[in-house]
Simulated assay, not measured.
Amino acid sequence: MNTTVLPEDGTREAAAPTAAPGPSRRGGRGGPRRAAAAVGGQVALYALLIVVALAVLLPFIWMTVSSVKADREVFTVPIQWIPRSFHWSNFTTIWTRIPFAAYLGNSFFLSVVITFLQVLTGSFAAYGFAKVRFRGRDLLFAAYIATIAVPWQAYMVPQYIIMQKLGLVNSYASLILLQAFGAFGVFLMRQFYLTIPDEISEAARLDGLSEYGIWARIILPLSKPALASLALLTFVNTWNDYMGPFIYLTDNRLWTVQLGLRSFIGEYDAESAMIMTGSVLSVVPVLVVFLLGQRYFVRGIATTGVKG
């Protein structure tokens, strides 16, 4: 039985009503404030990225604007972003002043051949380092990758002497042989191959497929993003190479576009507007290649080095 305890005066005390819980004023205001802070942070981030992008693109914008200027207007101080008069004829004159089409063809030939060979040799060597077990594999790989740290100037002279002894100076064969193999390509492809499960290769071996067959029929089709990344990086590097052709190519008919632009540099002055025009035209093939392989390039860079 329930008993009620009364106070000494005999009166019953009424129970105080309990206040229903409600939303805190501080908590209620915190939500909109946090949302506003998040939006402000996004706006600030995008503003920063736009500023950085403009800073990166500024030299290219200046080069493009200078390509339609007169020579005397290219290096004016302060920079004249809008020319007084647009010399669109620069883009037609350059083809007649020098054999620019031949230079572009030479650069394209070298870039395609060297890119193909680097992708072929790099992917094949990377398969051996990633999927084939042999004694000293990791040590050999570390020693090979360590060659990336050696500056090209350290072995430039010995390479030239070797090519001279072989009679390959002033020919494309010297550049192709020297650049057909690259430690960076092997490293890039090996890191991607490590993300491919070993069970796939083991199952193929049990089915009687040779190592060459596993590489060509299984590994390569799964490596399109990494192959595209390596191909794009190699193509751009070969296209922009200046020192290699400068050292080994002496015949004007073999010059690449980078050497061809030297034709506008005289003993006492330089045709700056024509140099800018040629530079803009030389960027177009690289831009087209990048746009065509952009999707695979981004995927390859994003997945390389993530071992699953």
Results as ranks from 00 to 15, higher is better:
Arg84His: 15
Lys69Leu: 09
Arg26Phe: 14
Met1Arg: 09
Arg72Val: 15
Val43Cys: 01
Thr76Asp: 05
Thr3Lys: 11
Pro23Tyr: 03
Phe91Gln: 11
Val77Pro: 01
Ile94Asp: 00
Pro23Cys: 00
Arg72Gln: 14
Val39Pro: 00
Ala53Trp: 05
Asp71Val: 12
Ile61Gly: 06
Val39Phe: 07
Pro17Phe: 06
Gly41Leu: 13
Met1Thr: 10
Lys69Met: 14
Ser67Met: 07
Phe75Ser: 14
Val5Asn: 02
Phe91Leu: 12
Phe91Tyr: 15
Arg29Asn: 04
Arg72Lys: 14
Ser24Glu: 11
Val65Asn: 11
Leu48Tyr: 13
Ala35Pro: 00
Gly22Lys: 12
Pro17Met: 03
Thr92Trp: 10
Met63Tyr: 03
Thr92Lys: 01
Thr76Ser: 11
Leu48Trp: 13
Phe75His: 14
Gly22Gln: 13
Arg72Phe: 10
Ile82Tyr: 07
Ala14Met: 07
Val5Glu: 06
Thr11Ile: 10
Gln42Ile: 02
Pro32Met: 02
Arg26Thr: 10
Glu8Thr: 15
Pro32Thr: 03
Ala19Tyr: 04
Gln80Pro: 03
Ile94Asn: 00
Val43Asn: 00
Ala38Trp: 03
Ala38Glu: 08
Leu45Arg: 15
Gly22Tyr: 09
Ile94Arg: 00
Leu58Gln: 01
Ala19Leu: 10
Val56Ser: 10
Ile61Val: 15
Ile61Arg: 02
Arg26Tyr: 12
Val77Arg: 14
Thr64Cys: 13
Pro21Gly: 14
Trp81His: 02
Ala20Glu: 11
Ala38Phe: 03
Thr3Glu: 12
Trp81Ile: 10
Glu13Thr: 07
Val43Thr: 05
Val77Cys: 04
Leu48Val: 15
Arg29Ala: 12
Ser85Pro: 00
Thr3Asn: 12
Val56Ile: 15
Gly30Lys: 07
Ala35Thr: 06
Thr18Asn: 00
Met1Asn: 12
Val52Phe: 11
Pro32Val: 02
Pro7Val: 09
Pro7Lys: 11
Ile82Cys: 08
His87Gly: 02
Arg26Asp: 01
Gly41Asp: 06
Gly10Asp: 00
Ile82Met: 11
Val51Thr: 09
Asp9Trp: 03
Gly22Arg: 10
Gly40Tyr: 01
Ala53Met: 05
Gly27His: 05
Phe91Val: 10
Pro32His: 03
Val65Arg: 05
Val77Glu: 08
Ser66Leu: 06
Val68Gln: 06
Tyr46Phe: 12
Phe60Gln: 11
Asn2Trp: 02
Phe86Lys: 03
Ser24Tyr: 06
Ala37Glu: 13
Arg72His: 14
Gln80Ser: 15
Trp88Ser: 04
Pro59Val: 13
Pro78Ala: 12
Ala44His: 11
Ile79Gln: 13
Ser24Asp: 15
Gln42Phe: 05
Ile79Asp: 09
Arg34Asn: 07
Ser24Cys: 10
Met1Ser: 12
Val52Gln: 08
Tyr46Trp: 11
Ala37Ile: 01
Ser85Arg: 08
Leu49Phe: 14
Val51Ala: 13
Val65Ser: 15
Ala55Lys: 14
Arg34Ala: 15
Asp9Ala: 04
Arg12Gly: 00
Leu49Ala: 13
Val77Phe: 15
Trp62Arg: 04
Pro32Arg: 05
Tyr46Val: 11
Leu6Met: 06
Arg72Asp: 13
Lys69Val: 10
Val5Asp: 04
Lys69Cys: 07
Leu45Val: 13
Ser66Asn: 14
